[in-house]
């Protein structure tokens, strides 16, 4: 349920896996929330031709596991799947799919939001944008999985 892949993403396939993992556990699964991150056609006014994503695969998988453990601690019984795509992606294609399955709907939305915020903070993945007139690496957060303040920010956003 956690992976880095070069293949196109399927929200249906991940949903099936995540739901099956909690169907007969605890209070079961009554809600699934999913998130797809897509390649946008423009970035700060520039027309995007395509993107290239790069990951440190082994470390990314560890980070996804950490996020899963954080979710399990805060929302016991929740299940989480994260698949990030790497390589060349066209406008409109999905770069990430996140699926959260919980007993009730409120927690499903929270878990899904928390997971994407944490991915943006700490997953070792990089986006390289190619425009009609040049290219640029996108650089966001300095990844520090032990930064508790960042984790609290993600939690606040998720539970707002």
């Amino acid at each position: 349920m956690l992976s880095v892949t070069r293949d196109p993403l399927s929200v249906e396939a991940l949903t099936a896996q995540v739901e099956a993992s909690v169907r007969h556990r605890g209070d079961g699964c009554g809600a699934v929330a999913s998130f797809l991150g897509l390649v946008r056609a423009t970035h700060q006014g520039r027309v995007v031709k395509y993107l290239e994503y790069e990951a440190f695969d082994a470390l990314a998988l560890q980070v996804f596991s950490q996020i899963q453990a954080e979710v399990e601690e805060r929302w016991p019984g929740a299940a989480l799947g994260i698949v990030h795509r790497v390589g060349r992606l066209a406008v409109g294609e999905a770069s990430i799919v996140i699926v959260a399955a919980t007993a009730h709907r409120a927690e499903a939305f929270q878990v899904c939001r928390y997971a994407i915020e944490r991915v943006k903070q700490i997953a070792p993945v990089w986006k390289h944008e190619f425009f009609g007139d040049g290219e640029a690496w996108v650089e966001g957060a300095v990844a520090d999985p032990a930064d508790e303040a960042a984790r609290m920010r993600a939690l606040e956003i998720a539970c707002a």
């Binding site: 990951a55 770069s95 991915v119 903070q121 997953a123 070792p124 993945v125 650089e139 999985p145």
Partner: peptide, 22 residues
């Protein structure tokens, strides 16, 4: 994940990561 102050040993694989954007 490690820290800049962490000791390294013979044969270690040390990675440097710029700010992330996944």
């Amino acid at each position: 994940f490690s820290r800049m102050s962490h000791p390294v040993s013979e044969g270690d694989d040390v990675a440097f990561l710029p700010p992330v954007s996944g």
